[in-house]
Amino acid sequence: MTTTSDERVDRAADHRPEPASPGATPGVGAPGRPARAPHAPADTGLATYLLRLGDDALVLGQRLCQWITRAPMIEEDLALSNIALDLIGHARTLLTLAGRLDGTGRTEDDLAFTRHERDFTNTLLTELPNGDFAVTVARQLAYTHYASLHYEALAGCPDRELAAFGARAVKEVAFHRLHADRWVRRLGGGTAESARRMQRGLERVWPYTAELFDEDDLVRRLAAAGTVPSPAPLRPVWEQRVTEVVTGAGLTVPVPSWRARGGRSGLHTEEFTDLIGELQSVRRQFPGGTW
């Protein structure tokens, strides 16, 4: 964990200007700001931020891998593996950038396979167990609409590599979002049972969606500096888009009586230990191995 150095950076950030006024384009850096040169000296704040996004993609990709050979039809084995492949690809780029920026020189694999559960900073939404197909579709709906907005905003950020990543990822996520939207419609408008399950799936995951838009000191500082998008302004757009899909499918957007948080600070679900244990098992069995 890089908590100590983050705190130091965050304290330094206290003297920075306040975030852009509400209504400004979400998350895009101040105009005229010079682009940060790639491979600049260690920026642990940005590295921590990238690690969060990378962990989201890695952990959700890992969950989707668990569907493969278990999907309701071969087309879905294909679709879910396609999405998992893109997510692992996103994780690889983000973890690589994070390892380079934090000054430790850790590779994507160092970050994925040698950290402990408590070091992962993905949102709890991404680690939720797959449940039935409707739970997975609900989780995909929430995540893909968020990722789509977030990556679109990242595409406008000043760091050239990060912007290039955002521009590429947003195109891929557009397909994932389409896939989720279509399944919400099919299940909502399919049979009475599928509608009941889809509604239950939404109820299951909705308390976990708020964490996607949480801002802590680190994010506020990075967003204020125009380095990364601010997630909070993305939320109303997200709400509007998912509501359109959910109500269009004859379903109701849940109003959760509670909200989950903790993933971003390494406080995970109990099931997460198994997920990480499985992810790292082979690598840990062969210390010093080359793969």
Binding site: C65, I68, S81, L85, D109, E278, G289
Partner: peptide, 18 residues
Amino acid sequence: LTRAPSLHRKSVLIAKVQ
């Protein structure tokens, strides 16, 4: 798939199973 020992090998295996 869930245990592939590097992210490169994981991607390759997902693509193969796909």
